[in-house]
Amino acid sequence: MSATISNRRKRSKLYYRVQHYAGEIACLVLGAVLVIWSLMPIYNMWMIALNKHDAIFEGGLWPEDPTLEAFRVVVTQDFWYLAQFWHQFGNSFYVGFMVSFLTLFIGSLASFTVGRLHLKNGWMLTNAALMTYVIPASFLAIPMYRIMQIYGLANNLWSVIATLTTFATPYAIFIFSQYGKSIPMELDESARIDGANPWQIYFRIYLPLMAPALVAVGTYALLLAWNEYLYNFLLLSTPGSMTVAVALAQFLNSDESPWNYMMATAIIYAIPPIVMYYGSRRYMAAGLTMGGVKG
């Protein structure tokens, strides 16, 4: 009898092992499909960036004569659209950082006070936030232009920061409110018994536990700011106050643009958000481990 049991065990072990490997292979295939799907258009961008200007649309699968010339041009600001590239890069950083910071700060405070402190009638705050989405952002361009003139923020980077924070925050409040539900209220209670005030609970307990959502939303806000160009043009006027998104949009000014420079600019421009995201990935991991410690 004991022999049949061990036999069955052996069989099931083998069965599970086969199942396991089949599953792993399926996952590998899925991974490969994902990589190809994600990279195709980006590979195309690289192709264009590595080509010479007059050979961009020859249609090979790899440039006949690949060159990093386009990247050199961007980095050394050797083309008139890109004459202020690094300065604009700095502006982009400033705007992107401020928008992310303000979005996370304002959004997490609001969701904390509504979701945890249960501020009387706080739900109105979240409902109000959603009203921002009744008309898509691109159609509020004209009212936003007007309002910045009234506030005296015309041609000031802060007009762009304020606008983009306005569009990003409702979304942040929303995701934080959803995500915050997974954090047990008892953590707050025990801190409260230890005499912590709401600010301390917000800062020491709520924020660290929200890390994964903060990273995701922060990157969202950064990219929102990073890619926005309509409002940059609309609200800013002088070349010194422009951002890289504006430099990119310049290439659309003409039907005859050096697309290789444009793609090289886009590739360089995409690096900081990626680096930032991967730099902050450990917070996502931290969120995970803390989630495990909770019980």
Binding site: F233, S237, A249
Partner: peptide
């Protein structure tokens, strides 16, 4: 002086003419 690409100028001009600033 502000020099900008033509679509941007277009959009900005329409925003300006519509809002009065």
């Amino acid at each position: 002086l502000s020099i900008m690409p033509f679509q941007a100028l277009n959009q900005k001009a329409i925003a300006a003419l519509t809002s009065g600033d």
